[in-house]
């Protein structure tokens, strides 16, 4: 019995979350969110992992009867990466606008509501 991969995933996720809380810069916070999301990739792939199994792409050497790792979680992970990348872009665009309008990217200085 081994749970090593799951705990690595949890640690990465929490590290990202702590980074967001400690952040003094919005760009830094966005990057920390990406780190946190990377934890979910590790978790998904660890769940689908099987020792000594091949990649779930069949061909002349890997027959459908061969042991392979779980393609479902790999597909989920792909979805996760795409969404993460686009959401990161959206958040960076928001940070850019905040920097233009408020002249700062420190979330602690952005307490006042305007407009």
């Amino acid at each position: 019995m081994s749970y090593y991969g799951y705990f690595v995933a949890g640690a990465i996720m929490l590290t990202g979350a702590v980074g967001i809380a400690r952040s003094r810069n919005l760009v830094h916070a966005v990057v920390c969110l990406s780190v946190s999301q990377a934890g979910t990739y590790v978790l998904l792939l660890s769940i689908g992992y099987q020792r000594h199994a091949a990649a779930p792409v069949f061909g002349s050497t890997i027959k459908p009867s061969t042991k392979v790792v779980d393609p479902v979680v790999q597909a989920l992970c792909l979805t996760d990466i795409v969404v993460s990348a686009t959401v990161t872009a959206l958040l960076l665009a928001l940070s850019l606008q905040i920097a233009k309008h408020h002249g700062t990217t420190d979330p602690d200085e952005l307490s006042a509501l305007r407009g």
Partner: peptide, 14 residues
């Protein structure tokens, strides 16, 4: 357990 051989979703997906 991590790395084990019990993957029902994999069997269905394949």
């Amino acid at each position: 357990s991590f790395g084990g051989s019990h993957h029902p979703y994999r069997d269905a997906a394949i």
